[in-house]
Design a protein around this nucleic acid. Structure first.
Length: 553
DNA sequence: GCCGTTTTCGGCCCGACTGTTTTCAGTCG
């Protein structure tokens, strides 16, 4: 899969170079192609082998040829030629905040500056003063940006599970301070992307200034970068940027739609609007002077004659066409989850831990919970729950809430080796058995694969599970699969297991993010193993067959 | 460079904010 991200990176670099060269629309075209390639569930090589490169959104004749060239030779001549035209350090200038292609180009052509170090030297030498459009503030801004870039390495995007508690704190802080009425997090956080570049908060309020004052005063906030009448941008102590916009209630839906994105989704909606004689902006949707919607997202989509589209799938990957046909998938919801198939008790587990799991499960209205009773850790060592805990599991199981015993086996175990008292089987890659064996599972129940590490590790497991009625755990962190792999799993007819939060710290964001990733992958209820009834999933249930997972994509 | 049930050519989202400006350019999202 790394071919895909490498190719995407190459096209991004081409876009940067074209930007500096002053090209108008090509850079966006290359970036669009890069985004599409990155979100592909399939290896670029496989797509190319089928001759389907041009079916990738944003990939036309020219870029398809460059992909072919890259796949066969490992290089792209066009890129090599561009790098000869632009000094290598110029692209680094673009990474500086407040400095874009126009400015980078001017520094290069008018000052002969070819990179960040030379720019810093030019500022020290006073060579920027007198340059048209460069007053003292602008020069100071560039100088500060250079110093900041040097001090702190470019932060990049943050894993969503890391941003999650921060976002919750900011929401809680803003709710506690009077003034904000409606309040939502938009952006890629709302779409539940695996990583977020910043946080986008949106509020309605009679008194925006008070909301901004309260926001700036939150303990997580390090500095206010900019503040206008409707918008404030701050930097948190951990370096994360957060934008807060305050809008009128009748604009809230339009602003939420706009700031949720994705960019490609928005562009698609605006194109449709234009074709239908409408105009969309972040304040509403208009036919000529007449305003035809904007208070809610539903109003916005309805005005375009589209069904509302869940944020997680707003990526311009066909969801707009589905909405036009009224065929938006009904994505799995937390209320669909009927059980949990993978609960670990703490080390040194005691009967009271079982009681806590039972209480959690009742609160979540689950009908069954699979508790890992014996298994193997990542280092290969074995563990087993003590007798009193096993007894409590047996006692506490009821018709209303069935407790199942789960055996976790190393990746290379033959399913036949699993003793009959283990009702559910979780396959766990370990250090000594990180990959599946060639052996297909033969058990009545498709195995669940969990503790898989990362995108590259997921692929062989998806192949292994194909046709085996198996399922794979989706969610944040290195031990689960992300939404891209989850989409590949669904396309292969493999079910997903969603984390419920039972037996976990209430602050642990694994459950909501797991659900978000599953939705992002396009999973419907029928594709989620633990949305099926107890009877369909467990051995003690009457039906022996697991719910056959259906692709939701 | 991509794209198209109005188009194979002529478009390409659109507005806030900042700094530098006598009316706008650049950056950002």
């Amino acid at each position: 899969m790394s071919t895909n991200s490498d190719a995407a990176e190459l096209f991004r670099e081409i876009a940067d170079l074209l930007d500096v060269l002053g090209e108008k629309f090509k850079p966006e075209a290359y970036r669009r192609a890069a985004r599409s390639i990155e979100s592909l569930t399939e290896d670029l090589k496989a797509v190319a082998a089928r001759g389907d490169l041009r079916t990738i959104p944003g990939v036309g004749e020219a870029i398809a040829e460059k992909i072919e060239e890259y796949l066969t030779t490992g290089k792209v001549d066009y890129y090599e030629r561009l790098t000869k035209q632009v000094p290598p350090g110029i692209a680094d200038l673009l990474r500086l905040p407040s400095l874009g292609p126009k400015t980078a180009r001017r520094f290069w052509l008018e000052l002969g500056v070819e990179g960040p170090n030379e720019l810093a030297a030019a500022i020290e030498a006073g060579r920027l003063t007198g340059l048209k459009g460069f007053g003292p503030k602008k020069i100071e801004q560039v100088r500060a940006a250079l110093a900041a870039a040097k001090a702190a390495p470019p932060s990049g995007r943050m894993p969503i599970e890391e941003a999650y508690p921060i976002a919750q704190r900011l929401l809680a802080g803003l709710r506690a301070s009077a003034g904000a009425e409606q309040l939502e997090i938009a952006g890629s956080f709302r779409r539940c992307r695996e990583t977020v570049g910043d946080l986008d908060l949106l509020a309605t309020s009679e008194t925006p200034a008070r909301v901004f004052d309260a926001f700036s005063a939150l303990p997580d906030v390090r500095e206010v970068r900019l503040r206008g009448p409707t918008k404030e941008t701050v930097i948190l102590t951990n370096g994360l940027q957060v934008d807060l916009r305050v809008v009128e209630p009748e604009e809230f839906g339009a602003a939420l739609l706009y700031s949720t994105g994705s960019k490609d989704h928005n562009v698609r909606l605006r194109t449709i609007a234009r074709d239908r004689g409408l105009k969309i902006n972040e304040y509403g949707i208009y036919r000529g002077e007449e305003r035809v919607g904007g208070r809610t997202e539903e109003e916005m989509y309805r005005a375009l004659r589209l069904a509302w589209i869940p944020p997680e799938i707003r990526e311009d990957r066909g969801e707009v066409e589905q909405a036009a046909r009224g065929a938006v998938p009904r994505l799995v919801e937390s209320g669909d989850l009927a059980g949990d198939l993978h609960v670990h008790l703490p080390d040194e587990a005691r009967p009271a831990d079982v009681d806590r799991v039972v209480a959690d499960a009742r609160r979540a209205k689950l009908r069954y919970v699979g508790i890992v009773v014996t298994g193997v850790r990542a280092d290969g060592s074995k563990f087993e729950l003590p007798g009193p805990v096993l007894e409590r599991i047996a006692q506490a199981s009821s018709a209303a809430l069935r407790l199942e015993r789960v055996r976790e086996v190393p990746a290379d175990s033959a399913p036949e080796a699993v003793p009959p008292e283990a009702d559910l089987l979780v396959v766990r890659p370990t250090r000594s058995a990180p990959r599946p064996t060639a052996r297909k599972p033969g058990a009545t129940f498709g195995p669940i694969v969990a503790h898989v590490g990362g995108e590259d590790a997921a692929r062989p497991w998806i192949e292994w599970l194909r046709g085996a009625s198996g399922a794979i755990e989706v969610g944040p962190g290195p031990e689960r699969i992300d939404s891209v792999s989850a989409r590949a799993a669904l396309e292969a007819g493999i079910g997903l297991v969603v984390v419920t939060g039972v037996g976990r710290d209430p602050e642990d964001p694994a459950a909501p993010i797991s659900l978000g990733f599953a939705r992002r992958a396009g999973a419907e209820k029928g594709s989620v193993r633990n949305a099926a009834s107890a009877a369909a999933v467990t051995r003690s249930g009457s039906a022996a067959r697991p719910a056959r997972s259906r692709s939701g994509a």
